[in-house]
């Protein structure tokens, strides 16, 4: 049986004031993890933002399955220096259930963001996106600042995304992409 297409990009050229990336096209099917590789500044993050509607699509089309839900984990999320929001409160923002959070997050759930390290905050944001009910998860350099245990937890979660969901994974770590993605697309300017 053919899998459901969640996203279809066709000859997309995207950017801001001027085009940054493209033309590029691919289909994202349910159950798939697609990797986007390429050098710094090649436009991988811009392509993710074109999918969410934050960057401009100059030409080409982005088709979405009806009622598609998307969550986007940003590269280098800013850790607020003084915000008493708890890990569990951030985790629940996207609809993930803190009670069912992976074990690696348990120590962070009752901890305020302001006392977290950059790596802990990155792990929390990444897991919140992956464990949310969104059908498509866009992950931008999720391995930044993560140590070995956190990388293992992320890998485990990526292996169990479910048959109805899909992930687009941006990373400059080629080994990480190769071990998690059925398809890797090289993005070049």
């Amino acid at each position: 049986m053919e899998k459901k297409v969640l996203l279809a990009l066709s000859d997309v050229v995207a950017g801001y004031a001027a085009p940054v990336v493209g033309p590029l096209g691919f289909e994202l099917q349910a159950g798939q993890v697609i990797g986007l590789g390429g050098s710094n500044g090649s436009g991988k993050s811009t392509l993710l933002r074109a999918i969410t509607g934050l960057s401009k699509v100059f030409s080409g089309t982005i088709q979405r399955a009806e009622g598609l839900t998307i969550v986007h984990q940003w590269q280098r999320p800013e850790l607020p220096p003084e915000l008493a929001l708890l890990g569990s409160e951030l985790y629940a923002l996207l609809g993930a259930d803190p009670a069912g959070a992976p074990d690696v997050l348990c120590p962070l759930m009752k901890q305020p963001l302001s006392t977290m390290s950059g790596g802990q905050f990155q792990l929390l944001q990444t897991m919140a996106a992956l464990c949310s009910p969104a059908q498509v998860v866009l992950m931008d350099e999720p391995t930044n600042n993560l140590d070995g245990d956190a990388m293992d937890a992320l890998s485990e979660q990526l292996k169990h995304i479910g048959p109805d969901r899909a992930v687009i994974l941006v990373s400059h770590e080629h080994d990480f992409l190769q071990s998690h993605c059925a398809t890797i697309i090289e993005v070049n300017r």
Binding site: V71, W74, L85, L93
Partner: peptide, 17 residues
Amino acid sequence: SPRLLTARFFPDYHQAN
């Protein structure tokens, strides 16, 4: 509050959906 908090940590969540 939840809308402002979501926009703070996931800035394009609402546009994307």
